[in-house]
């Protein structure tokens, strides 16, 4: 474990917590893409499928974190699609998730390190995570604005994988560890946030709201 990966995981936890708090406190999921949250839940379940396959003795933080990610993302989906369904902005959350899931699944079958079920699921989860934020970014572009709290959520969510890139550089240099698939997908994922990062840093940090087109 290195500082970059630690802060990456903390940033990821913060993002999940910020979103849960926003929905719970405001009792509304306005401005939040339910599809993105569904895709994240699918990512966690397919990536941590080993938790379900053999008994999980909660003997280390890794297992606990995986269970937190899975339960928090499923709970977030429950809040969006059931509890606060009335506030779900389905009209603007209109990006076709199938256009993300099918290519990720296809690519996972073509480009992977080992053609076995667990590895294919892991690879699918990595590819899907890289594009899972697109429905959320699409929704913001359709509504033309993002609540400040949602901007903080996106900043934390984007920073998590950006910090993981630093972690991969660190591990390549000090542990000569390379996980090419995760690195390529992580770079693509972080690039998708660049536009938002620019808006966040030039606007939200100064107390302004993000309004599109910028």
């Amino acid at each position: 474990m290195n500082i970059f990966r630690l802060f990456g995981d903390l940033s990821h936890l913060a993002a999940i917590a910020i979103l849960l708090l926003k929905i719970w406190k405001t009792r509304s999921c306005a401005g939040v893409s339910g599809k993105t949250q569904l895709l994240f839940a699918v990512c966690f379940i397919t990536r941590y499928i080993d938790l379900f396959l053999h008994f999980v003795s909660l003997y280390n933080t890794e297992k606990v974190m995986k269970l937190i990610y899975i339960s928090a993302s499923v709970f977030t989906c429950y809040l969006i699609f059931f509890k606060f369904k009335a506030t779900y902005d389905g009209n603007h959350d209109s990006m076709r998730a199938e256009f993300l899931i099918v290519p990720a699944a296809g690519l996972a079958c073509l480009i992977n390190t080992k053609f076995d079920a667990i590895e294919i699921l892991w690879t699918f989860s990595i590819y899907l995570e890289a594009v899972a934020i697109l429905p959320q970014l699409f929704l913001i572009s359709k509504t033309g604005e993002a609540e400040t709290i949602t901007s903080h959520y996106l900043f934390a969510q984007g920073s998590y994988r950006a910090l993981y890139i630093l972690n991969w550089i660190y591990r390549y240099h000090y542990e000569s560890h390379v996980d090419t698939i995760a690195i390529v997908a992580g770079v693509v994922q972080t690039i998708l946030y660049c536009d938002f990062f620019y808006l966040y840093i030039t606007k939200v940090v100064k107390g302004q709201k993000i309004v599109l087109p910028a």
């Binding site: 990966r5 995981d9 280390n60 890794e62 974190m65 995986k66 990610y69 080992k114 996980d179 995760a182």
Partner: peptide, 10 residues
């Protein structure tokens, strides 16, 4: 704690 080749990150 992961056998070599396993993915040891979240």
């Amino acid at each position: 704690s992961f056998p070599k080749g396993e993915h040891d990150e979240l």
